[in-house]
Design a protein around this nucleic acid. Sequence first.
DNA 1: CAGTAATCTTACTTTCCAGTAAGTCTACTT
DNA 2: AAGTAGACTTACTGGAAAGTAAGATTACTG
Lengths: 205, 205
Amino acid sequence: MREREIVDAALRVFAQRGYHAAVVDEIADLAGISKPMVYLYLGSKENLFVACVRQAAEALVTAFRQAADSGDQPQLRLWRGLSAFFAFVAEHRDSWVILHRQTPEQSEAIAEELERARESVMAEVTDLVRRGIDEGGADARLGPADADFVASALVGAADSLTDWMERNPQETPERVALRLMNMIWVGMRDVLGGEMWSPPGDSVG
Amino acid sequence: MREREIVDAALRVFAQRGYHAAVVDEIADLAGISKPMVYLYLGSKENLFVACVRQAAEALVTAFRQAADSGDQPQLRLWRGLSAFFAFVAEHRDSWVILHRQTPEQSEAIAEELERARESVMAEVTDLVRRGIDEGGADARLGPADADFVASALVGAADSLTDWMERNPQETPERVALRLMNMIWVGMRDVLGGEMWSPPGDSVG
DNA sequence: CAGTAATCTTACTTTCCAGTAAGTCTACTT
DNA sequence: AAGTAGACTTACTGGAAAGTAAGATTACTG
């Protein structure tokens, strides 16, 4: 299907150059056609970008949800979800860059679509974390804002670690996910159990 | 000083629109002068951007280092460093956006300067983490790659949490830092002590 | 083979914007 | 008052790239 080929090419170019610096002629070349074909199929540069965002978000959410749905223990689901995430990014770096590393002030339509896409990703992760908190024997102190906090931190860490993974090519997605689990899960278990760190001589909290 | 005023205006516009979508005329307007003045003082759009990156990086590194240098225990230093970071971003959101959320393929000079700036930030954090690992009674399993890993995850999480902080305006930088500490430090302490999580029936590690 | 529909390209128009030439205004000096 | 230097602006040039008009090529149908 032509449209899919164009979007695939666009993903690469947009990810490498960013929305504005990307040139439609280059996308057309990469797709092996000429510029008017791009406009015939996708209408405008803006709409082409929106199509890229949609495709990237759908692919990522699907991969993540499949992995995170199976399994019984919360930490196992989280690990599988993270592994799927790192595997996805290793395989489709461009999609992740477009979803998560764009300056969003390009146009109303693009800002909206990016917002929607990021929210759908965050919703998956937040959901996973919330279930983990609930099943892990929630402390009364932990509310919805906490799940949101943990999910935010997790997604940010994972994003940053995609770069680390590129610098350490001997690491598999599973091992990166395991490292991250060890960095947070062991601690979260204790925090869920009521243990907290606080700065000495201070009563914040 | 005129140059400083221009760079301040540029920081805002570049952060909001991104390098390419930013228009020099708008920067000039915001600084209350006309475009040729910008070129008189800064030479070119590219060079103006580089000046923004330099200023942002220097300000952040200074704030972070000051905060993280004081104190004796590693976790206290880390908490103070993180607090300083969140305070800095709350105060100078634009600087952080420019340092950390640009598609870097704009030009050779810009890519280099961004690389340098990001590395200088990462170096501060990595150093702090490494000292934490060493003083925390390092396990033989933990090497330089681990400090790098933790630092990456930490910076990514912190970046993402700047958005969370905007959505939760009642939270102070100190409290956000404390939340993040609790998410990772308690766990890191156990991991440093040799405790690890691994997926059941699997011998990764 | 002639007609026609689908697919695609060349070559253009238009807009936008980085960078600049040339000149204006103000303030200060002699 | 006339000259001059510094700070600044208006109005332009040149080039890049989004979007399009008009036509070429191919393939299919009677």
